[in-house]
Design a protein around this nucleic acid. Sequence first.
DNA 1: ACAATTACCTGTATGC
DNA 2: TGCATACAGGTAATTG
Length: 274
Amino acid sequence: MPELPEVETVKRTLEPCLSGKTIDSVSVFMPKIIQEPALEQFELILAGKKITGVDRRGKYLLINLSEGYLLIVHLRMTGRLLYVRKDAPVEKHTHVIFSLEGSHDLRFVDQRQFGWMYLVRNNQLNKAGGLAGLGPEPLSPELTPEMLAAMLAGKNTKMKTLLLDQRFLAGIGNIYADEILFAAKLHPQRTASSLDQVEIERLYRCIREVLAAGIRNRGTTIRDYVDGGGQIGEHQHHLGVYGREGRACKDCGQPVERMRMSGRSTFHCSRCQN
DNA sequence: ACAATTACCTGTATGC
DNA sequence: TGCATACAGGTAATTG
């Protein structure tokens, strides 16, 4: 569910609440969420650690802890990390509770149980899932149009598939992939190597603009997504094609089409996107 | 290299 | 009302 703009919004809403707080204790109700280390170790190590900061890499949340530890969380489809008062009722599908010093908990809630977390030393983040293999951050200054051109060169993969590949760029998912291609006027089935320089520069600009707009609007809430404070996003009101099958394209009025690519619903306007 | 399918889960929407 | 089916923002593993 959450893509880069949503995870970034969670990060921004949690950071001021968590930084400097000590974790008193941890309760895990769904052991399979914890990938590493063993459950007793997970709870034992976390007790007494202080949270020193919160970062994001792709769709991963990185919670920095004292003594060189790092808690890595991936929300997958329906995961939520919520900063809530300790006296708030424990909602359904609450799988982990971090009891913090003071009045609040950090709770991990996940209806579909796809999310997971790793606790590692902060020099061993290669231990956690696909984190080490992530491509560049789409919004970082290090990504230039020239670099994007080099990444696309010689690839026969279709653009929709490529944008979903976390090793290509980190953090783009099904909604923003469709929105980026619509903004860039590129058909989802175009192959990477077929883009000319003008199209690459347009793609570069649209990747950054679309993701930045998602962050500005505090993420897209279709059904489940909320930020660290439980607030829904607003970007669903600004979507060009995603979820708009049969409705008029905002640019040309022709009905938006839906197809299936890489097993995912893919929306596009066949008049605007070539 | 690239594409397509399945699995992991629960909940919701749709059609009959 | 019940029941079956399809689908949902992600990723990893498997097969072709």
